[in-house]
Amino acid sequence: MPERSEDQEWAARAAAGDESAFRAIYRAHVRPVYWIAHGILGSVVDAEDVTQETFVVAWRKLPKLELVGDSILPWLATICRFQAANRLRRRIRDREHTAETPDETIADTVNVEDQIISAELAERIAAEIGTLGELDREIFRLCASEGYAYQAAADELGVSHAVVRNRLSRVRTQLRGAVKEVRDA
């Protein structure tokens, strides 16, 4: 039997009610989910709300999830896009029922093409992260996902500040290349 990915293990444990496993999923994926929401909504407050709503829905739906692939991020990205679309519809409905002048900055529809690109981008980033070595994945998780400073990540991993800085720079360059491939496609 092939070894399960970290996401697959966390998802199985969380689906069985393990809150610490769900917290691990949250910590690993909250930033990408937030940026997907922010990209759709263009509002920090709404993106934060939708991010939280995404994880609430994910917690509720995890017992029925049949994870395809190694990463749970594409599934979370799909939930996030639906939550963001619901938020946009609510904004439009609220705007139509107020006496104030309409806010022309709110889109009337959600651009499906942008959503597909976001899903492809999330999948490509998740796949690219999966190709990283264990130390590089941990450096990326700590610095990019959890917001650790270089020195704090270095202390946590028992390596030097320079190792964290150099490896993270290389990982970011690799991810930028992957993102460029999706955008140029």
Rank of each mutant, 00 (worst) to 15 (best):
P2A: 15
E3C: 11
R4C: 12
D7P: 00
D7C: 02
W10V: 00
A12R: 11
G17W: 08
A24P: 04
I25P: 03
I25W: 07
I25R: 07
R27P: 04
R27M: 13
V30P: 04
V33F: 06
V33S: 07
Y34S: 03
W35T: 03
I36C: 10
I36E: 06
I36R: 06
I40T: 11
G42P: 09
S43N: 10
V45P: 10
D46C: 07
A47G: 01
D49Y: 07
E53M: 08
F55M: 00
V56Y: 08
V57L: 12
V57R: 14
V57Q: 13
V57T: 13
A58K: 02
E66L: 13
L67R: 03
G69D: 04
I72P: 05
P74A: 00
P74W: 04
L76P: 06
C80Q: 06
Q83Y: 02
R87I: 05
L88S: 04
R89C: 02
R90M: 12
R90A: 12
R93Q: 11
R95M: 15
E96M: 15
E96L: 14
E96Y: 15
T98C: 07
D103Y: 03
D103R: 07
E104D: 13
T105F: 01
T105K: 12
I106C: 02
T109D: 15
V110F: 02
I116M: 09
I117R: 14
E120N: 10
E120K: 13
E123Q: 15
A126P: 04
A126C: 06
A127G: 15
E128K: 14
G130K: 07
L132V: 01
G133F: 05
L135G: 01
L135A: 01
R141D: 13
L142Y: 01
L142V: 02
C143M: 08
A144V: 09
V163D: 02
R165M: 06
N166S: 12
R167D: 08
S169C: 09
S169W: 07
S169M: 10
S169Q: 11
V171P: 02
V171G: 01
R172F: 05
R172H: 10
Q174T: 13
L175G: 03
R176L: 12
R176D: 13
R176H: 11
R176N: 13
G177P: 04
A178K: 05
R183H: 15
D184Y: 03
A185L: 15
